[in-house]
């Protein structure tokens, strides 16, 4: 860790999690340095977050030590509009499929990775789905039909309103009936007393 601290500004997130912000151009150099001079030899994950308000994607290359006791996040910010990133699959073959995933979900192009074909989606056209400006509702309205439901399907809100009104009416009727009954009983009692 000391060697890394000498060369880079290391942020300490917790006892076992560190982060370094680097520029895209120094990505390959940094990874070669990590893998040849330090114990961070395993690429565990490439996580991407879309910060649309800053117009950037942040790629987090999570590296793990050979003892699997510490993790280091290399953070690379790239522009959201089609900036090309060099592939790291030469030093870490597992990056090939991770980059394929990110290419499909965000449209990021990884230079040198020639396996950027379909991953989980089939023949996807248009905006990649994990970008924050992707409009899910619009996509659903364009591509799917809403089911009409059963023939006896009722509008829930209207039905609740109708039932409430019915209950209110019933209650009013009941109160009226009770009042009439009480009045009648009273009148009968008065007649009895007078008579």
């Amino acid at each position: 860790m000391d060697m890394i601290k000498e060369r880079y500004e290391v942020g300490e997130k917790s006892k076992r999690l560190f982060e370094i912000d680097i520029a895209k151009d120094s990505l390959i150099d940094t990874i070669s340095f990590l893998m040849s001079h330090t114990d961070f030899i395993t690429l565990s994950m490439i996580a991407c977050a879309d910060w649309i308000e800053d117009e950037i994607f942040v790629l987090n290359y999570v590296f793990t030590t050979s003892n699997r006791d510490k993790n280091l996040m290399l953070k690379v910010s790239i522009s959201r509009d089609g900036e090309v990133v060099p592939t790291v699959s030469i030093s870490s073959p597992q990056a090939e499929v991770m980059e394929r995933d990110l290419h499909e979900m965000y449209g990021i192009v990884f230079d040198g990775n020639d396996t950027l074909y379909d991953f989980a989606l089939e023949g996807w056209e248009g905006m990649p789905p994990l970008r924050r400006d992707f409009d899910t509702l619009e996509y659903v309205n364009e591509n799917f039909d809403f089911k009409g439901g059963r023939d006896d399907n009722k509008d829930v809100k209207a039905e609740v309103k109708r039932r409430k009104a019915e209950a209110k009416k019933l209650k009013a009727l009941k109160t009226e009936a009770n009042e009439t009954e009480a009045n009648e009983a009273k009148e009968a009692e008065e007649v009895k007393n007078n008579g």
Binding site: I41, T42, D69
Partner: peptide, 23 residues
């Protein structure tokens, strides 16, 4: 180790790694 294999794929190769113990 370098390719990021985990769990039994590592321990079945005689490499003692387990997050519960290492981290």
């Amino acid at each position: 180790l370098q390719n990021g294999y985990v769990g039994q794929a590592l321990r079945g190769c005689g490499i003692k790694r387990d997050v519960r113990r290492d981290n």
